[in-house]
Amino acid sequence: MTEYKLVVVGAGGVGKSALTIQLIQNHFVDEYDPTIEDSYRKQVVIDGETCLLDILDTAGQEEYSAMRDQYMRTGEGFLCVFAINNTKSFEDIHHYREQIKRVKDSEDVPMVLVGNKCDLPSRTVDTKQAQDLARSYGIPFIETSAKTRQGVDDAFYTLVREIRKHKEKMSKDGKKKKKKSKTKCVIM
């Protein structure tokens, strides 16, 4: 069974824990209790493949930012979460993405942009803004509501699919490099 290491990042209060708990335990946590770091595991079937999701729910508070490099190193894919009623959390996505790329030393890291709290009427981040940002990053965008469960499975499952595509691409690139290195030079 394939294991996928997913990391949920975003500013404090955007609903990272609520999304994760909704996926794992099928219930909505409405009281806000700032996370330092929590880890969850769940076995699911995605596109006919049974897999184990190892999900790291991270601290959004700035005082825990020193811990970010460590979990970013171990993560295979990242859910970059903002709240649709919090423009600052949307603007912060850029910083999370840049930090992930720096730590992973790669421009090509599996990510999904997630606009959470889409059940709320007080939207300050337009869907088109988020779609445009995701398009500019070359990553999928999904709106979710941890409260109603809308888009929750889709967000995590899409990230797994992005990781699969990335692994497939990397193995193809690896095979191309191996083929090239088999060419021999004969000096007579």
Rank of each mutant, 00 (worst) to 15 (best):
Y4T: 14
L6A: 06
G10A: 14
G10R: 00
G10E: 13
G10P: 01
G15D: 03
A18C: 05
A18W: 01
L19E: 14
Q22D: 15
I24R: 02
Q25P: 00
V29P: 10
Y32M: 13
P34N: 01
V45S: 12
V45Y: 04
V45F: 07
G48H: 08
C51H: 13
C51K: 06
L53G: 07
D54I: 00
I55Q: 00
T58K: 00
T58E: 01
G60I: 01
Q61P: 07
E62W: 06
E62M: 05
E62C: 06
E63H: 08
Y64W: 10
Y64T: 11
S65G: 08
D69G: 04
Q70F: 10
Y71D: 15
G75S: 10
E76H: 05
G77W: 04
F82H: 07
A83R: 06
A83E: 15
I84D: 15
N86I: 01
N86C: 07
K88S: 14
S89G: 09
F90E: 11
E91V: 05
D92G: 05
R97P: 02
E98D: 06
Q99W: 11
K101T: 08
S106C: 08
E107F: 08
D108M: 09
V109Y: 04
V109H: 02
P110S: 02
V112C: 08
V112K: 01
L113C: 09
G115R: 04
C118F: 07
L120K: 14
P121D: 13
R123M: 10
K128T: 05
K128H: 05
K128W: 04
A130W: 14
D132E: 06
I139C: 09
F141M: 04
R149D: 15
D153M: 09
D153Q: 09
D154G: 05
D154H: 05
D154M: 06
F156A: 03
F156H: 13
T158I: 10
T158P: 05
L159H: 02
V160E: 11
V160S: 10
I163R: 02
R164C: 12
K165F: 05
K165M: 07
K165E: 05
E168P: 03
E168D: 08
E168V: 10
M170C: 07
S171G: 03
G174D: 08
K175L: 07
K176M: 13
K176N: 13
K178I: 08
T183W: 03
T183L: 11
C185L: 02
I187W: 09
